[in-house]
Amino acid sequence: MVKETNKIADSGIYLILAFSALLCLAPILYAVALSFSDKAAANAGLVYFWPVDFTLSSYKEVLGDRFFFISFGVSVQRVVLGGIINFLVTVLMAYPLSKSARLFPGRNAYMWYMVFTMLFSGGLIPWYMTISSLKMLDSIWALVLPTAVPVFSVILLMNFFRGIPKELDEAANMDGAGPWQTLFHIYLPTSVPSMATITLFSIVGHWNSFFDGMILMNHKENWPLQTYIQQLVLSLSSIMNTTDPEEIKRLSAISNRTLSAAKVVLSMLPILCIYPFLQRYFVSGIVLGAVKE
């Protein structure tokens, strides 16, 4: 009897879990289906989770879009450069901050300074004015330097470092290792899951952000991919301002559901590719850094 109810409960649980997982995939599948469907079928709303009148024409069209690839390149550049900067800054900050205030008297001042910048901001316009007066508009640095200090990641890694046994430190000191050696030869090798986690966060963060690209990049050639997609998919409403016959002509040619879907799918690809490799680390990475007993 008990076994019987257990079986029913089990199948119920498995069903719910499987359904939730499908629900998570549904929008992505829908975008994929749209991107491989014929334009007419998509406009008529005939597409569900499987392509209708399968065609590669949308992808072929993307191939001809120079700006898609340019902004793809900008995004890659940004992820690599920004990822490296984030990584270095995070590691260098997390290590001294993981020391107790007794060992490192300035520690709490730095901590408060950092948290204050995380919690309080001067607003968009002063922020823009600062970057603009540094002559960084339209430069890749504007996308990577203002976000160079990922405070959340620093805290995560700092908490992880705190969990590393003090004895390791002391042993290293005995052998004459200074802070730099200890950090790079002892702390880093033991923190792979946390490193992977903060790297994934910084890659995803850089890849996904559109707002700074929109505000700080003055030329289309310098847009990261998400900015390009945001402008393309979501704000073709601009036609209201360009009631010019020729404009209308061109714009009616580029408004296209399946093409947008193809671009959306392509822009998800890099994340989908790196995600499985880093996924096995980040669960332990987050947990060790966030939940402390």
Partner: peptide, 8 residues
């Protein structure tokens, strides 16, 4: 990038 803009 954080403190300077706060004067804004």
């Amino acid at each position: 990038f954080s403190i300077v803009p706060m004067f804004g």
